[in-house]
Simulated assay, not measured.
Amino acid sequence: MAVSEAEAVVMEVLWHQAPRSAEEILAELGPRQGWQEGTVKSLLNRLLKKKAVAAERDGRRYLYTPLLSREKYVSQESKGLLDRLFGGRVAPLVAHFSEQRKLSKRDVAELKKLLQELDDEH
């Protein structure tokens, strides 16, 4: 399931707290994103069609709940990034980030720890 960048912004709100109405989502995102009610409702409709969210009637409004977990979304996005840009390999990704952004001592320590844990498993 491909979720656009704008749809992911709506999903972040729902992952943080759900269920939420379109009005509640607009109140949170409108000022920050410069979005109007129609934009939020369009994004919610797209997410409904993709089955990333569910809607339940609550009186005269709908309450939206995520069906796609944040963990699954992050996994899909990171796999897509790896496949598209680095041939599915992690090492070139880490090398790219180390060249573009200096890794902190903490980053390096965490990477070393992860590599050691992976090495211990094999």
Rank of each mutant, 00 (worst) to 15 (best):
M1L: 11
V3Y: 12
S4H: 09
E5Q: 15
E5P: 07
A6F: 14
E7S: 07
A8Q: 15
A8C: 05
V9Y: 09
V9R: 13
V9G: 04
M11V: 08
M11D: 02
E12T: 11
L14S: 06
L14F: 08
W15H: 13
H16I: 08
A18V: 07
P19N: 03
P19A: 10
P19T: 12
R20S: 10
A22M: 10
E23T: 10
E23F: 02
E23L: 07
E23N: 12
E24Y: 13
L26M: 06
A27W: 04
A27K: 11
E28G: 11
E28L: 15
L29Y: 08
L29E: 03
L29I: 09
G30H: 11
P31C: 06
R32C: 00
R32V: 07
W35I: 12
W35T: 09
Q36E: 14
E37S: 14
E37A: 13
T39K: 14
L43N: 04
L43I: 10
L44M: 05
R46Q: 15
R46C: 12
R46V: 11
L47R: 07
L48V: 01
A52S: 08
A52C: 14
V53L: 09
A54D: 11
A54E: 14
A54L: 10
A55Y: 05
E56W: 00
E56F: 03
E56Q: 12
D58I: 05
G59Q: 07
R61L: 11
Y62D: 02
Y62K: 08
L63S: 06
T65P: 04
T65V: 11
T65C: 08
L67S: 06
S69N: 10
S69H: 12
E71V: 15
E71C: 13
E71R: 15
V74Q: 09
E77L: 15
E77D: 14
E77W: 12
K79R: 15
K79D: 11
K79C: 03
L81K: 10
L82P: 00
L82D: 01
L82N: 00
L82I: 09
D83G: 02
R84C: 05
L85C: 12
L85P: 02
L85I: 02
F86D: 01
G87T: 05
G88W: 12
R89T: 09
R89C: 06
R89W: 03
V90I: 14
V90N: 00
A91F: 05
P92R: 01
L93E: 02
V94Y: 01
V94R: 01
V94E: 00
A95W: 01
F97H: 02
F97L: 10
F97M: 06
S98Y: 06
E99W: 01
E99C: 04
Q100K: 12
R101T: 08
K102H: 09
K102V: 13
L103D: 09
L103H: 04
L103P: 03
L103N: 03
L103F: 15
L103E: 04
R106H: 07
R106C: 00
R106D: 07
D107N: 10
V108H: 03
L111E: 00
L111Y: 01
K112E: 11
K112M: 07
K112Q: 08
K113T: 04
L114Y: 03
L115D: 01
Q116R: 10
Q116V: 03
E117H: 08
L118S: 01
L118I: 04
E121W: 11
E121K: 13
H122Q: 09
H122A: 11
